[in-house]
Simulated scan of single mutants.
Amino acid sequence: MKFNLTHNNFNVLDLEKSMKFYEEALGLKEVRRYEAEDKSFILVYLGDGQTSHTLELTWLRDRKEPYNLGENEFHLAFETDDFEKAYNHHKEMGCICYENKDMGIYFISDPDGYWLEVLPKK
């Protein structure tokens, strides 16, 4: 029996704002979308154009209050080929929420408060 990772999911309050953030911050683009017939939810899958793994953004029509992320001890990690340029870009965007200079990594936060780790290519 074999399993492959396909996607991760984040629920979002403002789908367009989140899609814009992920494209500007990480270069992720929409690769497919599913809209419920009754318009109660939309699923948008974002990809990096290099791997088959996607980030599913779920928008629920009736959801108005922010999601409770608990202690937010989960995250997605992104590797970059130009760490300094990425760091400067995210600093300019104002989305860096935590830095660990000893480990050589930092985290950015999306519009809903999800943390995303950025690390240099090994």
Rank of each mutant, 00 (worst) to 15 (best):
residue 110 D to I: 04
residue 68 N to G: 13
residue 109 S to K: 13
residue 33 R to N: 11
residue 62 D to Q: 13
residue 63 R to K: 15
residue 85 K to A: 11
residue 11 N to E: 11
residue 12 V to D: 02
residue 6 T to N: 08
residue 18 S to L: 05
residue 114 Y to V: 07
residue 66 P to W: 04
residue 30 E to R: 14
residue 49 G to V: 04
residue 88 N to M: 08
residue 7 H to L: 05
residue 93 M to R: 14
residue 22 Y to F: 06
residue 16 E to S: 14
residue 52 S to H: 11
residue 60 L to D: 09
residue 62 D to G: 14
residue 122 K to H: 15
residue 112 D to K: 13
residue 108 I to M: 02
residue 64 K to H: 06
residue 79 E to N: 11
residue 103 M to H: 03
residue 107 F to E: 05
residue 52 S to I: 10
residue 8 N to C: 06
residue 120 P to Q: 13
residue 73 E to C: 09
residue 108 I to F: 00
residue 57 L to K: 07
residue 87 Y to W: 05
residue 98 Y to M: 09
residue 20 K to W: 00
residue 94 G to P: 01
residue 38 D to N: 15
residue 11 N to W: 04
residue 108 I to S: 02
residue 56 E to C: 06
residue 14 D to I: 07
residue 116 L to Q: 01
residue 121 K to D: 04
residue 111 P to L: 09
residue 111 P to C: 10
residue 96 I to N: 01
residue 104 G to V: 07
residue 24 E to G: 05
residue 114 Y to C: 06
residue 60 L to Y: 06
residue 97 C to L: 02
residue 33 R to C: 12
residue 102 D to C: 01
residue 56 E to S: 07
residue 28 L to V: 10
residue 69 L to P: 01
residue 104 G to N: 06
residue 24 E to R: 12
residue 104 G to C: 05
residue 58 T to L: 00
residue 7 H to K: 11
residue 119 L to C: 04
residue 101 K to E: 13
residue 99 E to H: 10
residue 36 A to I: 06
residue 122 K to T: 15
residue 5 L to W: 05
residue 37 E to V: 08
residue 72 N to G: 08
residue 122 K to Y: 09
residue 56 E to M: 08
residue 50 Q to W: 01
residue 118 V to R: 01
residue 17 K to D: 00
residue 27 G to I: 05
residue 29 K to Q: 14
residue 58 T to S: 08
residue 18 S to H: 10
residue 106 Y to P: 03
residue 65 E to Q: 10
residue 11 N to T: 14
residue 1 M to D: 08
residue 74 F to A: 13
residue 15 L to C: 03
residue 58 T to M: 03
residue 58 T to Q: 03
residue 28 L to E: 06
residue 10 F to Q: 10
residue 70 G to D: 09
residue 100 N to Q: 08
residue 16 E to M: 11
residue 80 T to K: 07
residue 32 R to S: 14
residue 115 W to N: 12
residue 33 R to I: 14
residue 64 K to V: 09
residue 35 E to M: 11
residue 61 R to P: 01
residue 75 H to Y: 03
residue 63 R to C: 05
residue 91 K to T: 07
residue 9 N to G: 07
